[in-house]
């Protein structure tokens, strides 16, 4: 397992390195010059940060389903929910920061309260609040509270998306699938594909790593609880 993880990490770093090379050697953009290269990092991070919440929501439903049926499955689902929520916050943070760098270069301002930026900030806020709730809630009910909150957050994201779209709409139209003149120049596609792959692999790696750490934590807690119980029982026997 560890060897496979190390192999995956090595492969990811190699693809990431090649992605960096491709991004830095792609042709310079007509109006923005070299500043546009942050786009090769912004796009993969934002797209992937919309993928992790779905996984988080699925894991949360899984937890609620297995909670009273299969204890081990439920714990696994909870560990996966933590991992994907943290990945969401990480990728959304990188997406926000790279987006602000881009905004500063393209529009001259760091931040605009337009539809996409506001929705994205809300996504970030929702999952930060999820992680804070996990930290605050004590004892055995953490997983349940977190699962319920994750489902609420997942319901909230589309409502946010639609309502804010009606509210204001400075971010460019979707780059892909946004109409006739959307898409990037074909000379930039290889760099985009390599970076997409690299950051997807990195995402899978950190989610896997966090999942493994969280599972170990759960196992250690279970072991500690069992040990406590057995000590208690033997004390009782001695007392009798």
């Amino acid at each position: 397992m560890q060897a496979a993880g190390m192999f995956w990490l090595g492969l990811t770093l190699a693809v990431m390195g090649f992605g960096f090379y491709a991004a830095m050697t792609a042709p310079t953009e007509a109006t923005m010059g070299n500043l546009y290269r942050v786009f090769f990092y912004h796009l993969p991070h934002t797209i992937l940060s919309f993928l992790f919440p779905y996984l988080n929501c699925a894991a949360s439903f899984g937890y609620l389903f297995w909670r009273s049926r299969n204890r081990v499955r439920a714990l696994q689902a909870d560990a996966f929910a933590v991992a994907t929520a943290e990945a969401t916050v990480l990728y959304a943070s990188v997406g926000l920061v790279t987006g602000m760098l881009w905004g500063r270069a393209a529009w001259g301002i760091w931040w605009a309260w337009d539809a996409r930026l506001t929705t994205y900030l809300l996504l970030w806020l929702l999952y930060v609040s999820y992680l804070i709730v996990r930290r605050f809630s004590a004892g055995g009910s953490t997983a349940l509270i977190a699962a319920v909150l994750a489902i609420f957050a997942a319901i909230d994201v589309p409502i946010c998306f639609m309502s804010i779209r009606w509210w204001r709409t400075q971010h460019p139209a979707p780059v892909f699938g946004g109409g006739a003149d959307s898409g990037v120049d074909s000379s930039m596609l290889p760099a985009l594909r390599w970076n997409m792959l690299a950051w997807a692999m990195w995402g899978a790696f950190i989610v896997g790593l966090r999942y493994a750490i969280e599972r170990r934590k759960q196992q250690a807690e279970t072991a500690a609880a069992l040990e406590f119980l057995s000590v208690d029982a033997s004390d009782l026997v001695e007392a009798q």
Partner: peptide, 15 residues
């Protein structure tokens, strides 16, 4: 905890 959770979730309603 309540404001930390309620504010982000209620944001579309508040808007």
């Amino acid at each position: 905890l309540l404001p930390l959770v309620l504010c982000p979730i209620a944001m579309p309603a508040l808007l």
